[in-house]
Amino acid sequence: MPPYFDHAATTPLKPSAGQAITGHSGLANPSSLHGSGRRARLAADSARARLAAAAGADPSEVIITSGGTEADNLAVKGLYWQRRGEDARRRRILLPGIEHHAVLDTAEWLETHEEAELVMIPVDRDGVVEIEALAGLLAEDPEAIALVTVMWANNETGAIQPVEEIGRMCAEAGVPLHTDAVQAFGSVPVSFAESGASAMAISGHKIGAPVGIGALLVRRDVKLTPVQHGGGQERDIRSGTLDVVGLAAFAAVAEEAVDSLSGEAARLSRLRNRLADVVGPLEGVTLRGPDPRARPEKRLPNNLHFTVDGAEGDSMLFMLDMAGFDTATGSACTAGVPRPSHVLLAMGLSEEEARGAQRLTLGWTTAEEDVEALAAALPGIIDQAKQAGLAASRRQ
């Protein structure tokens, strides 16, 4: 495959995932009572325990889903319906405008169809939640708050949120917190137990497992209204036949990612900073999110995001694609939609500034020579994109 700089969208399947898939491909339905079913159940229980350990959770807290989007929907809808059912005053959902569409669109659906009131938590120019503003919102009328949802790390800018501090604030206010940790899990230290969150979403294909497997971690004392109904699997929160093969692969790569996290984060940070050193000084280029060299602890180690004045992000993407590099302008979940990033707009950028975005995300397949090749190509391609944008503006 060409040099791949879109690991935030999907990371190629890791060998450990392939081995797990091969080793578990003959398993039966784990809900069946015969011997084959019991063997499948044992395999599922083992994988669940390994995944839980990697995420800092108890196995009983792991609810298997088809991925991050389902996990986010289950958390936001489930918490809202449960809390609203217990007290009709609980209509407010507090969230920042930088959330992934799996959370943001779910909240907007609840606003349209279920009388939810969305309250936006301000973020600063780096896309980090303003803690004092959140404290004020929590104190305003905590009895009317259904839930707070704040992503652990942003999928576009790589900005890491102070989740543990937010978790403490929400606990003091008696309000459940959901966090979308899809980008954070496997890239930075993540512990569900230490986060203070009531629910946390993670996904397999971001760390090298197959697409179609994820999990929602839910504390045992937290009640969720199910989104789907059926056989009562997964604590009756998420009915459906358990994907044992996918779960085994997810557990294998999760263990591998957590075990190698420190060394891999250092490697990817170094490679990412090499690209930052190349594009940062270029005229008209602005690095977005926390500066990866000045405040590395505030940013995912594999993420570089920048905007180019007067250029179109799609133009840069296609030029890089023609040069043999896979990159992104933002979330792959909205790819092909010609509109500025809602994340950048929430950070205070104008639509014109936000249109010139480019995201580079590295991963386990990224080699030194890939980075050096991209570093050599970027200045010329950025200049071409600026010239193309200038020419287009003159034609209007």
Rank of each mutant, 00 (worst) to 15 (best):
I207F: 04
A215E: 01
G263V: 15
L261S: 05
G208H: 05
A265Y: 07
R219I: 14
A215D: 01
S198Y: 08
L304V: 09
E297V: 09
H229C: 09
S262F: 10
G263D: 12
V245E: 14
H229T: 12
I237D: 14
I202E: 02
L300N: 00
L300H: 10
G263H: 15
G246T: 07
L261K: 04
P290M: 10
P210Q: 09
Q228K: 12
L300Y: 13
S198Q: 12
P290N: 07
R235N: 03
R299E: 06
S239E: 06
K298Y: 13
E234W: 02
N302R: 12
D221K: 12
P301M: 05
A254Q: 02
M200T: 11
V308C: 14
V227W: 13
R295G: 03
G214F: 05
I213Q: 08
A197T: 15
A265R: 01
A199Y: 15
E234T: 08
P296Q: 01
S262G: 13
K298W: 11
L216G: 09
S260H: 13
P281N: 05
R288D: 08
D221F: 10
E264D: 10
P301T: 00
I213F: 02
H229W: 09
S262I: 07
G204P: 02
N303I: 04
F250G: 00
A251S: 10
R293A: 01
L261I: 05
R274H: 12
P281F: 08
A197Y: 04
E256W: 10
R293W: 01
G232P: 06
A266E: 15
A248D: 13
E255R: 00
L268E: 01
R274I: 15
A249C: 07
L275Y: 09
L275I: 11
P292W: 01
R272Y: 14
G284P: 13
L275W: 10
P296W: 03
L242A: 00
I213L: 03
T241Q: 13
G263A: 14
R274M: 15
A254M: 04
L304D: 03
E234K: 11
N302A: 07
R295C: 06
A248E: 06
G246I: 01
S269E: 00
V211C: 14
L268H: 00
R220F: 09
A257E: 12
S260Q: 13
A249H: 03
V308N: 11
G196K: 09
A257R: 14
T225C: 12
G231M: 08
M200E: 10
